[in-house]
Amino acid sequence: MENRMVTRKQSRHQITMSVLDKDVRKAVALGDVAKVRQALEAGISPNDVDNNGWTLLHLAASRGRDRVLRLLLEEGGKPEIRDIIGGFTCLHYAAMHGRTRLARLLLEYDKSKRCELVDIPSRDGWTPLHVAAHYGRDSFVRLLVMYSATVDPLSVKGTTPLQLAIIREKQSCVKVLLDNQANIDIQRGFPLRYTIIKGNHDAARLLLNRGANPNLSREDDGQTPLHLAAIKNDNLNCRLLYSFGASCHACGDDGKTPLDTYKDVYTNKESAPCFKFLQGATSNPRKLQDTCRLTIRHAIGKTRLHLIDNLPLSILMTNYLRYKYDDFCGL
């Protein structure tokens, strides 16, 4: 009988706490600091999880409730706890929604855990920087880098934040990552190859101007970005790549040049602008002027190309080195 009485008490307590838990989660979502404080005083823990593995900190970060988040941290909330859906922390959710103010609070509250929190991976190996890049949260990317986030962390599938920004076509975010020394040639030049495959001329020009190597080949078939542009019959990208140093004589694993590859893919090709360009570029040597520009840019190095304007050269020359006024349609 005594054991039965204890069980009933435990049952009533669980029901009471369940109701409290629902109430406090609603209060967190609404940003009601007073009700959240009352629930914590009644015995609710900021680290209790729901069916998705969300703590109150996950909810506060997702809804942008900074005052509630501060209270939860003061009451022992652990921001490093990961949910059971994807293994995301509250910082991941702050990144998802672009809550930079909350992220700053999380990273400043306990500086001893900052290094762990800023780079903590999800189940798929996504850090908060992956999430911010995926959703194009430029200011959040800047904040994470300022707090020493690793710029090129690899996910389980070997993906970096830069690759995600490229795939999602978040061009401003791509610029922020490159400004912070993200590896532009990651995965043997994946960013440039992807933009060529997608026919994204603006992104391709951005990457090439920032120093992307136009001659890195794919591991599976040895094809360079120029091969891929030829397969796409993309005259503009063929001209763009060539202008930035792509070799017309590079061969894939099948021993074929971009021009050979083009001939294999297309019939009635003689009148096509792309074919005419590849044929002319393959048959004739580069102009000395263009060779000099490529040599100078190579000597500067891709990590220092942003310093071209600081060189003791005329504006005309610096603009030339930066391809500022080049019209690749008219080459």
Rank of each mutant, 00 (worst) to 15 (best):
H97E: 12
I231E: 09
G211F: 00
K9R: 13
I231D: 02
W54Q: 14
R205N: 15
L102W: 08
Y266K: 10
D221L: 04
D326P: 00
A34M: 06
N237E: 12
K256N: 08
I308C: 15
A204I: 04
I81G: 05
R70E: 14
I81K: 10
H97C: 05
K276V: 12
Q171D: 11
A103F: 00
L294S: 08
T257I: 02
N47C: 06
L240P: 15
A132N: 01
D48K: 03
C173Y: 03
K256H: 05
P285Q: 04
S45N: 06
A133H: 08
A165T: 05
T100M: 05
I166T: 09
V265F: 10
D309V: 14
D221M: 05
D23C: 06
L206F: 06
N235R: 06
D185H: 05
G222T: 09
R101H: 07
M5R: 15
G189T: 00
D50I: 15
V68S: 04
Y262S: 01
A204E: 06
M96I: 03
K302P: 00
T295S: 15
C274T: 15
D124C: 03
D119Y: 07
R218G: 14
I84L: 14
H134F: 14
K302V: 09
L129M: 03
Y323N: 12
I81R: 07
N52C: 14
Q38F: 06
G98D: 04
L162Y: 02
I15Q: 10
L56H: 12
P214I: 11
D50Y: 10
S217N: 08
G252P: 00
N235Q: 01
V33N: 02
Q289C: 08
L313E: 11
E169A: 04
L105Q: 13
V28D: 08
C292P: 02
T195P: 03
L294R: 14
A299V: 10
H306T: 11
S45T: 09
T7S: 12
Y194K: 08
I81Q: 14
R188K: 02
L129H: 06
A95V: 01
C274R: 04
H92N: 08
D32M: 00
R297N: 08
V49M: 13
K276F: 06
S314A: 13
R297H: 05
R205T: 14
K111L: 04
G31I: 00
I84M: 12
D253W: 03
Q10F: 12
I84G: 07
K263M: 15
D23K: 15
K256V: 07
V36M: 01
R297D: 10
G43P: 01
N268V: 07
L294A: 03
D23H: 12
C90S: 14
N209M: 15
N284G: 00
Q279K: 11
R188H: 06
N213S: 07
V145W: 02
P161C: 11
V19P: 09
C173N: 07
